[in-house]
Simulated scan of single mutants.
Amino acid sequence: MTALRLGTRRSALATTQSTWVADRLRAHGHDVELVEVRTEGDRDRTTPLAQLGGTGVFVSALREALAEGRVDLAVHSLKDLPTAPDPRVALAAVPAREDVRDALVARDGLTLGELPAGATVGTGSPRRRAQLELLGLGLEVADLRGNVDTRLAAVHEGRLDAVVLAAAGLRRLGRDAEVTEMLDPIQMLPAPGQGALAVEVRTDDDATAAAVAALDDPDARACVTAERALLAELEAGCSAPVGALAEVVLGVEGDELSLRAVVAAPDGSSDLRRSLTGTPAGAHDLGLRLARLLLEDGAADLMTTSTDPAVTERAQ
């Protein structure tokens, strides 16, 4: 039996996520080998992601390897996927989703509300930056790149008072014991697709698609479909100050899909928050409808509004 070649980035988180997928494929009787693929985002650790092309820079090299036949499938953090379709690849599975929330890791076990005014909080995300500013806590938000170990070290070594990271990544790496506060989505809505994995295959590879399909979780797919449809309709990149969270909830007539979203000014000076409810089967339409509601209420202007030119430049 020929082994499935699974493309992965070198980072500890990417390797952990890819190994998780590989183990589940092996449990279904498939032989899987990991193939390392380097990306521009891995080679350049200092340039802000927005200038490199957003978190989608981590996806492009894996997609090239997939399209060229060097690997048979690739695993991504779903929040990194560009919303524009790539006809060469197909999203074959969205496995069960991890914790969607953002997490704070702060010195001395502090929570966000306990950090003093002027405390420095590191993040490379315009979405997190804007929502931190919106809380009005007087925090200094610092740009931060690097892998999970590098970001956590900035706190442990005293260079920053705190960092904000995705809870899912910390859990997958077994580092969640270092979290000092899980941030409620009421405070900070996550990125569209956060906590979910995407398994892509070539569009003409039916055999691999069939093997991977066993990992697909219908609820997770419905949720991320709604979140990504919203992001695409807003024409916002994955580094834009947009947060969204869809959840399957029990309604009067069965399962419903609840979707809420925030669009913020890059400098955190203002925001729009809206929500709608639909059905899991209508996930894509739900995302479109909520995006159009936000656009009617001024979201497009808000995303490019900033009283600080430096912040506007970072968000572009």
Rank of each mutant, 00 (worst) to 15 (best):
L183N: 12
A211D: 10
A191P: 00
L234D: 13
L189T: 14
A153G: 07
H30E: 15
L245V: 03
L91N: 12
A209L: 04
L144A: 14
D31V: 06
D217P: 08
A300D: 14
R289M: 07
L134M: 14
M188C: 04
M1C: 01
P95G: 05
L286R: 08
E233H: 12
V32P: 07
A226K: 07
G113Q: 08
S11M: 01
H30A: 14
A90E: 14
A211N: 01
G268I: 06
D308W: 03
T180R: 09
V105D: 02
R274I: 00
V311F: 02
E133I: 01
V59W: 11
E233N: 02
T123E: 07
T19Q: 15
A130G: 05
R70M: 03
T225H: 09
E98L: 13
E140C: 03
L286G: 07
E313M: 03
E64N: 06
R151I: 02
A93L: 10
M182E: 12
A12R: 15
V100F: 14
L286E: 07
S269N: 00
L4S: 04
T208G: 02
H284T: 05
L139S: 09
R221F: 04
L231T: 03
V94K: 03
L78F: 11
P190K: 03
R45S: 13
A130N: 08
V35P: 02
L230M: 09
P95Y: 04
L230I: 04
V155I: 07
L160E: 09
A65K: 05
E235R: 15
S125Y: 08
L234T: 10
D42R: 03
A315D: 14
V121G: 07
A67K: 08
L286N: 10
L160P: 09
G169T: 01
A74K: 05
P185M: 06
E33P: 01
A119M: 06
R260E: 14
D143K: 00
V32F: 04
V249M: 12
A65C: 02
E227L: 10
A27C: 03
A299M: 07
A291M: 09
D297G: 01
A50F: 00
P218M: 04
A14L: 13
D301M: 06
A244H: 08
L295N: 04
V201N: 08
E253Y: 01
L259K: 10
A232Q: 13
R129G: 02
T208M: 02
G41Q: 09
A315V: 01
S270F: 00
G113E: 13
D161K: 04
G298C: 12
D301I: 00
L183W: 09
D72Q: 08
A310L: 14
D308T: 05
G118T: 06
L257Q: 11
Q316E: 14
D216W: 11
L6K: 04
R175Y: 11
S60C: 00
T305M: 05
A67F: 02
T304H: 13
A61K: 05
M1P: 12
A191M: 02
G122Q: 12
L276P: 01
G254Y: 07
E36G: 00
E36W: 02
D271F: 14
G29T: 12
L137D: 05
T225Q: 08
A162I: 09
L104I: 05
D44L: 07
V242K: 10
E98S: 15
V155P: 09
R43H: 07
L295T: 13
V94F: 05
H30I: 01
G169N: 04
R260W: 02
A162Y: 12
T305C: 10
